[in-house]
Design a protein around this nucleic acid. Structure first.
Lengths: 140, 140
DNA sequence: GCTTACGATCTGCTGCTGCGTACGGTATGT
DNA sequence: ACATACCGTACGCAGCAGCAGATCGTAAGC
């Protein structure tokens, strides 16, 4: 049988590490940490009402992201304003500068992905990305 | 534009974590650790002449795998015999029992993968696996 | 007013990893 | 024989992850 391939999890996990490693220099060039970029990405999609919700959304510990939020806020990339309606919670959203940084980093990352996927036939690539998206949000 | 998807690295890394997590109970059921299974898999492909080569092959620290090798050897799943030609090195290979365990675990993992991929159209699935394999060994 | 619950923060603990170092046993070249 | 290099092993250290507990401010129900 032609089923002579590495395990799915092994391939995907290894590829994931490689791709993340490829992102590292890009993030460094923009002076953004990995978690910082993850936060910017989450907030770019939609502002968050609590830090706990943000932590859940990005799959991080709620205590882990505090330092990252501090730094992003200090650099003026996010706003962290107490909710006037419930002063326990901090409303989180990108500043215009934060959105600019996120867009720039994202553009650079997409360019790198482009390079990595360049050799693939267009049809294969479409299918691959579609399946990947589906599995990513998928039934798991 | 329709390029509104998460970053490639984010999707692949997250999917990888999910898949690895799905393997964990299977490995536990067969009483094999993650690294143990990785070692068995590597040795199932081909015996190794040195532990350093094995470590390199599976991307682990050479000091990290020693305890795993000890355990696998003690359980009679691998042989670790000094090379008569160079008694510094330990020739590593699966025992028949080790091969049986590896085959059983692998079969269970494949069954689980089958379940996860069940919803995909056959054509998509073929392409996905092919592209994945290519990227995995690929130009990266 | 009092109790209970919740958000953000800080601290400490634990387990895993990567990395460097050191040491003994062994080959190899001169 | 001797110097050098390599293998396997053990040990310690630093960094980072998740997790639990304690604190403080605040909100909501009774």
């Amino acid at each position: 049988m032609a089923d002579d391939r590495p395990d799915l999890a092994a391939m995907v996990a290894r590829l994931g590490r490689t791709l993340v490693a490829a992102e590292r220099p890009i993030l460094a060039a923009h002076d953004v940490s990995m978690w910082g970029y993850v936060v910017l990405t989450a907030l770019a999609d939609e502002p968050m009402r609590t830090q706990a919700a943000l932590a859940r959304a990005i799959g991080a510990d709620k205590t882990r992201i505090i330092a990252d939020l501090d730094e992003l806020q200090e650099r003026g990339l996010i706003e962290r304003e107490p909710d006037p309606a419930d002063r326990r919670v901090r409303l989180l959203r990108l500043t215009p500068a934060g959105r600019r940084v996120h867009t720039a980093v994202r553009r650079a990352i997409r360019a790198e992905e482009e390079r990595l996927l360049a050799d693939l036939p267009a049809a294969d690539r479409r299918v691959f990305l579609r399946v990947l998206q589906r599995l990513d949000q998928g039934p798991l």
